[in-house]
Design a protein around this nucleic acid. Sequence first.
DNA 1: TGCAATCTTGACTATAAAGTAAGGATTACC
DNA 2: GGTAATCCTTACTTTATAGTCAAGATTGCA
Lengths: 156, 156
Amino acid sequence: MKVSAQEEYGLRCLLQLARLAPGESLTLGQIAEREGISSANTGKLMWLLNKAGLVTSTRGTKGGYMLARLAADIHLSEIIKVLDNSMLEGHCKSYTGLHETCVHTDDCGIRPVIISLHEIVQSALERITLAQLTGTEQSAHQALYQIHKNSLEVRG
Amino acid sequence: MKVSAQEEYGLRCLLQLARLAPGESLTLGQIAEREGISSANTGKLMWLLNKAGLVTSTRGTKGGYMLARLAADIHLSEIIKVLDNSMLEGHCKSYTGLHETCVHTDDCGIRPVIISLHEIVQSALERITLAQLTGTEQSAHQALYQIHKNSLEVRG
DNA sequence: TGCAATCTTGACTATAAAGTAAGGATTACC
DNA sequence: GGTAATCCTTACTTTATAGTCAAGATTGCA
């Protein structure tokens, strides 16, 4: 259970764009340099983000990438979904009903756990926007920590 | 961000053992058959779980696997940790301080998010025991859903 | 128009995760 | 002791993920 490379670096690239002043843009090379990854790899990620409508791109000289919306309107849940929307694709195919001979269809104690985990993570990601991550490291951490702490307090 | 195959099937194998009456055990072949995966693969998973002290094994005729503790004393957090304890091993090596030239050391907006996500998931897994999963599908789901719902209610 | 800068696309390679196979070691039973 | 059942261990194969490369398409500018 880990954040994939694609998720992490894609999010990093978006964060670079979110830190720009309004109207500014960055080229592939600039993003790649700031993130310390190759242009080729960055290109692949930006293509995904562009296809999903999270960024806009312009080609040719003076081209580059910008966020398609305000950073405050882009939630982490949407970003993660674009970069790897497969958390619910369990290895047991019965989740999606595709594999009818699966031995777990009747008495599966695992599926509800995976579904609940997905909901918990998703609801945390829905509460954080790109804009919140552009602040200091401390403020971003506090925002998420608050969510975590809340869930602890209620249970006692 | 998904549950790995090793995590899912390892958990499934433990659940088979948790459903046994006290003193009963299952062989590799029996576990494999019930889970619909190969004996070879099951053997690898059980070896991991045995090494970590979650199950005990006896060799030879009449051998097999049992839980090393009561199912009510085994929390999902421990199981996941054994099967894939790498959620915090981010792709950016600055998380662990291993990669000193990482461009993100000073101004990393991502690390706190990953750390917080880890804490949120971990705290949910700490609240669920294997015993809770042996009940009906409904009861297990409800246990986790409650945690999720609590975190929502506090935020309003 | 021609050139340079840029994004786009598809095929390729490398690395990590998952799964398989086979022989060795241990135990129970006769 | 011998034999059959079982777990243990290492090496191998397959598959999925990550990352790279090179050629193509679009744009701005002289």
